[in-house]
Amino acid sequence: MSEFAFWMVAALTIISAGLVVFSGQLIYSAVALLFTLLGVAGLYVFLWADFMAGVQVMVYIGGILVLIVFGIMLTHKIVSVKISQTNVQRRIGGFAAGLFLVILISAMGSASWFMEVTPEPVETVRTIGILLMTKYLLPFEAASLLLLGALIGAAMLSRKEN
């Protein structure tokens, strides 16, 4: 059951990621990115990380992707102009990517994988919450300060100067 679904999700992720890179128009790349991010959220579900999958959808699709699409549309003349997305230095880039692929495959082939069937965790959100409030309290608070700084900065940048 889950194997079939896994291959579907993996195919969705890879194919749409390919479209992001190879589509000629920026807006199509952004739309393809929607499915890539969704596929990644699906992969999180297979790792029993359901909360992470929700966060992935909420932050990346609901926040970042909407911003990207907004940006493309606002900088885009409605008619005529096409913002095309070009890949310069195809050969060097392709060579580097191919080399990396070879390294990855050889590493995957030679590594001795530790295999284990993990049982489904009963509570994921509760565990994350408790860990955030105890063991990782300092990073959590630091991140919240950082976000607050970003928020104030954004408000500063966007306000009218007078």
């Binding site: 359901d50 909360f51 929700g54 959808v57 909420m58 699709i61 609901g62 909407v66 959100v125």
Partner: peptide, 20 residues
Amino acid sequence: NIGIFYILAVSSFGVIGLIL
């Protein structure tokens, strides 16, 4: 497990559709 959070998360899907 994340039911209500899931609904909030996937409702952002519609936004992309509206802009498109």
